[in-house]
Computed example of a mutant assay.
Amino acid sequence: MTQTYAQIQKKIAALQKSADALREREVVGVVARIKTAIEHYGLTAQQLGFGAPGGTANASINRGNKAVRGGRAEKFSDGNGNTWGGMGKRPYWLRDALAAGKSLEDFRTGTVADVAPKSAAKKAKSKKRRRSTVIYRDGAGNSWSGRGPQPRWLKDALAGGKTLGDLKG
């Protein structure tokens, strides 16, 4: 049976009305469950992302919880809720601002002074490297410590009939 445009529009309107009523009933249930959870956990509006400038609900929750951020201090902030701890790739908001002519110092927060002395000492300590000892040499001045993949000169020498014992030295 062929339906007219008007009949289909009438069915669409009826279905839309039915969908709106069903959605309203579901929303009432969802709101009740959310209110129960808020009361149970004692959540605040700020934790839920309300009243936090420029952020989403998840971003504001993560910013307020040091355990989620791994306990790192926020070293850089743009004042709009965007922060960066100085580890990993620079976030896009900071890259864009730097490309627009701002300097990194414009975004530095006050927590850096607390963290900087520890990290500077840690970096100085990690700079010390143990020198690798040379175990194998050839006559042309090439050497290999015996660690890591064999260099091409050593592979060529071994393929040419020499042994590691011949190159020891």
Rank of each mutant, 00 (worst) to 15 (best):
A37T: 05
L94A: 01
K118W: 04
A100Q: 14
H40G: 05
Q9D: 10
N62K: 11
T2I: 15
T4C: 00
Q46C: 06
L15T: 00
R95Y: 02
V112Y: 13
R108L: 08
R129H: 09
K102M: 05
S145N: 07
G88I: 09
G79P: 00
R90V: 12
K10M: 10
L167R: 02
I12F: 05
R137V: 15
R147H: 06
A52N: 06
T36C: 00
Y136R: 06
V134L: 07
K66V: 14
D156N: 11
L15I: 02
V68L: 15
K155W: 08
G49L: 06
A157E: 05
T133Q: 07
I38M: 05
L154Q: 05
P91A: 07
R95E: 02
K11N: 10
L167E: 00
A19D: 14
Q46V: 09
R63W: 05
T133I: 13
E105H: 12
I135P: 01
L43P: 00
S119V: 15
L98A: 04
I135V: 03
Q9R: 13
A100G: 12
Q7F: 11
G139V: 15
W84H: 08
T109K: 07
R69L: 15
V31K: 11
W84S: 13
A13I: 08
G165R: 12
W84C: 07
N80E: 11
S103I: 02
A67D: 12
Y5N: 11
Q3W: 01
R95Q: 07
T111L: 06
H40R: 04
T83P: 01
S143C: 10
A14I: 05
